[in-house]
């Protein structure tokens, strides 16, 4: 391998490695963003559909208006919420 070829080889490797690390980092960031989004979803349903647990928060008239959109979440959510222990932290 000539000096020149070596250089270009290493620069390619660096490129690939940087891309790879960058890819990992952005994957991690995307995952974090979605995770945050997911736990907010939790909080959101609690606030809007709270009376599922007997805590009315949003006026019921408006809570019914949102109900159609959360039908799939409602049943799984109720079960999850009951064992969620950091709920109070989320609300603080």
């Amino acid at each position: 391998m000539s000096e020149q070829e070596k250089q270009s080889f290493f620069s390619k490797v660096r490129h690939v490695v940087t891309d790879f690390i960058y890819g990992m980092a952005s994957h991690e960031m995307a995952r974090q963003a979605l995770k945050t989004r997911g736990s907010m979803e939790h909080l959101f349903i609690l606030i809007t559909m709270g009376d599922l647990l007997g805590v009315p928060i949003l006026p019921p008239y408006y809570s019914l208006r949102l109900l159609p959109y959360v039908v799939p979440q409602v049943s799984t959510w109720k079960r999850r919420m009951l064992r969620e222990k950091d709920l109070t932290d989320a609300l603080a």
């Binding site: 009376d51 006026p59 019921p60 008239y61 809570s63 109900l67 039908v71 409602v74």
Partner: peptide
């Protein structure tokens, strides 16, 4: 319409009933 149900799932129907039975329902309506 949104989910192509023939019948409203029980859990959802219960919720509609419970929300409507609250005094706050009349007030907010």
């Amino acid at each position: 319409d949104m989910y192509g149900f023939d019948k409203i799932p029980q859990e959802i129907e219960d919720y509609i009933q419970a929300a409507s039975a609250e005094p706050a329902m009349e007030e907010s309506a």
